[in-house]
Every structure is written in structure tokens, then in C-alpha cells.
Amino acid sequence: MSAEEVQPVMGVLTETEIREGLTSGEVVIWPFEEGKLTPAGYDLTPSEFVYSLNSRLLVPVVHEGREKFCWVEAQDTVLVLTREAVRIPRYIAGTLMSKASVTAVGFGHFSMALDAEWQGPLLLALTNPTGRRLKLPFVTVGEGGEIREHTIAALRFDLIRSFMGMPGVERESRLRIPGVGEKGVLEECLQGIAEIDFSSGQVESGRFDAEGFKRNYEEALKRIRFFTERGHKVSGEVLGRRRWIGIGREVGFGGCLVGVVCYMGYQAVAFGDFTFLAFGGLLLGVLAFGKR
């Protein structure tokens, strides 16, 4: 499938047409797995780069039994980087939609557009609108050792109605990650990923080099993994410090409550006036409600 063979009509690419694009090199999905190709699209999987907009940290990865996953806290939005890199030509646009398996557990539905001539992985915004934390699974290992990679989004390809005569657009194939430009080791990691140019290394003849794109992404993937692992280490250290600070605050708050109760009880016994005790109970209720 090439630009000259495309008819100027709209429509979602079918499995057969996607295969034709993959064979010709006009469309690239890498790494590509046969089982993720659907009758009208391709299912994308999450990487371990999950960035919380609330904490401004990478979300810890949990290994539990045969599962690898992370927890997305209540009322938080996370940015999830896909494992797959995608390249589409100028006559195709894309649409990303959340999978039912993701929204069924409580995550909010998301949908985003993929511009023509995009190259590189995708950064998805996933929101937890519930009052409890939700599990985002990465991988499950079966009883027989088979590995199941969980999908997060369905990618649909749409033909642009009329691209003939449209000028080519030089698009910067870089990720946009909040927090980049600030100081700190984690921001340096985010900056390192954001600076990767996934379109580099292309030939100057104007014809897209699909194999070159795959090799370029494999090299970029090493950088992504390096910065992701480093970012997880830094995030873990920050979370540890925050946890100890939280414990200190809890202990201090509990000590204050005990002190208030003891003082009010002393006043009630010493003066025989239980107004102090009633006031203390009311104060404790207000403090406890405010804490919650």
C-alpha cells in the first residue's frame, strides 16, 4: 500500500490493509506481535514508565506472585508510555481509545488523536476518578510459564479523505512530558526521554526507511529503559522520605490528641466542671474530621 494506491475516501483500515502497510513499510508498529492485530486495528501495551501527575513521580512497579503491575491512586492521572513505537504516513491518521478491560475496573475512558506522519511511542493519559486505588497490570505469567502482556489501548487507522497536493509537514517526533525543565534527578530522566528524536537516522531521499526506524527505536528503547529505571530509583527514594515524614506527622498528631484528652480530663476532675471534657470531645471530633 502506497500513497499512489490510496483512494481519496474515508474509512478505517482493516486487518488486511494494515498488513499491506506493514509489508510495504509505509506503516510501522514495533515491536509487532501477531496476536495484538485485530480486524480493525492494533492493541497497544503499557511500559513500566507510568508518571503520576499528583505526586510528580514514577509509580512503583509491583511484583506479586505471577503478576507485574502498579497501583494508580484515587483521583490521580498517570501518563503511560506504550511499549510499541508507531509510524504512519501522511495519508493516514490514527485514533487511540481505551480498552474495555481498562475502563471496566474503574479507569476513565480516554481517546486521543494520532497525527499523520507521527513516529515514535505514545504517551497516554489514564485517570482514576474513583475513591480507591486501581491496579494497572503489565504482565501475567500463566501456570505453564506463558507470558500475557496486558493491553491498554486500541489503535485505529483512518484514511485521510484527501491528501493529494497537501504539503509534507516536518513534525518533531518527541514526547511532551510535564515537569521537564525543572531541576532534580527525576527531571533529568524525563528530559532524557523527551529529548529522544525518534525520526533521526532517516535517509535523505524522502522515502521512509522502516528497518532504519526499527533499529533507531531499539537504540532509543535502551535510553528509555535506562532513564525509566533511574527514575524509579529516584521516585522510590522520594516516596520513602515522604512516608517517614507522614509517619512523623501521624505520631505528632496522635500525641497532640492524647495531650488534649489528658488536659481536659484533668480539668474536669480538678474543678468538677465537665464542660472542659465536653469541649475537649468536641475539639477532638473537629480535629479528627479535619484530619480525615
Rank of each mutant, 00 (worst) to 15 (best):
residue 266 Y to G: 12
residue 101 S to T: 08
residue 194 A to C: 01
residue 14 T to N: 10
residue 13 L to G: 04
residue 61 V to S: 05
residue 14 T to W: 06
residue 101 S to A: 14
residue 252 G to T: 10
residue 292 R to T: 05
residue 96 L to Y: 06
residue 45 T to A: 06
residue 80 V to I: 02
residue 80 V to N: 02
residue 117 E to G: 09
residue 58 L to C: 07
residue 24 S to F: 06
residue 240 G to M: 13
residue 63 H to E: 01
residue 247 I to D: 13
residue 91 Y to H: 13
residue 264 M to E: 15
residue 18 I to L: 03
residue 221 L to N: 06
residue 139 V to N: 09
residue 284 L to D: 14
residue 265 G to N: 11
residue 224 I to V: 05
residue 215 R to Y: 10
residue 66 R to V: 13
residue 81 L to G: 04
residue 196 I to G: 09
residue 10 M to C: 15
residue 242 R to L: 04
residue 244 W to R: 14
residue 165 G to K: 12
residue 22 L to N: 04
residue 28 V to P: 01
residue 153 A to S: 11
residue 143 E to G: 09
residue 271 F to S: 15
residue 18 I to P: 05
residue 23 T to V: 04
residue 288 A to I: 13
residue 119 Q to I: 15
residue 292 R to N: 14
residue 26 E to M: 07
residue 116 A to R: 10
residue 30 W to E: 04
residue 126 L to N: 02
residue 155 L to Y: 03
residue 149 E to G: 10
residue 2 S to P: 11
residue 290 G to S: 14
residue 21 G to R: 03
residue 55 S to Y: 08
residue 204 E to A: 11
residue 262 C to T: 15
residue 106 G to M: 08
residue 203 V to P: 13
residue 14 T to R: 12
residue 150 H to V: 10
residue 114 L to I: 04
residue 197 D to Y: 04
residue 18 I to K: 05
residue 138 F to R: 01
residue 217 Y to G: 01
residue 258 V to T: 09
residue 237 E to W: 13
residue 50 V to F: 07
residue 79 L to K: 05
residue 110 F to G: 12
residue 132 R to G: 02
residue 73 E to N: 03
residue 246 G to N: 00
residue 98 S to K: 14
residue 236 G to F: 08
residue 31 P to L: 02
residue 209 D to F: 10
residue 46 P to L: 01
residue 161 R to A: 12
residue 270 A to N: 13
residue 17 E to Y: 02
residue 242 R to W: 01
residue 188 E to C: 03
residue 120 G to T: 01
residue 69 F to L: 06
residue 254 G to Q: 13
residue 246 G to T: 02
residue 6 V to D: 05
residue 162 S to K: 12
residue 212 G to V: 14
residue 218 E to L: 10
residue 236 G to K: 03
residue 120 G to P: 01
residue 69 F to C: 12
residue 218 E to F: 12
residue 170 E to K: 09
residue 169 V to T: 11
residue 163 F to N: 08
residue 43 D to P: 08
residue 232 H to R: 11
residue 29 I to G: 00
residue 179 G to S: 08
residue 128 N to H: 05
residue 83 R to V: 00
residue 56 R to P: 06
residue 245 I to K: 15
residue 13 L to M: 05
residue 161 R to M: 13
residue 69 F to V: 01
residue 176 R to T: 10
residue 270 A to Q: 15
residue 111 S to N: 11
residue 221 L to W: 11
residue 107 F to Q: 14
residue 212 G to N: 15
residue 175 L to G: 02
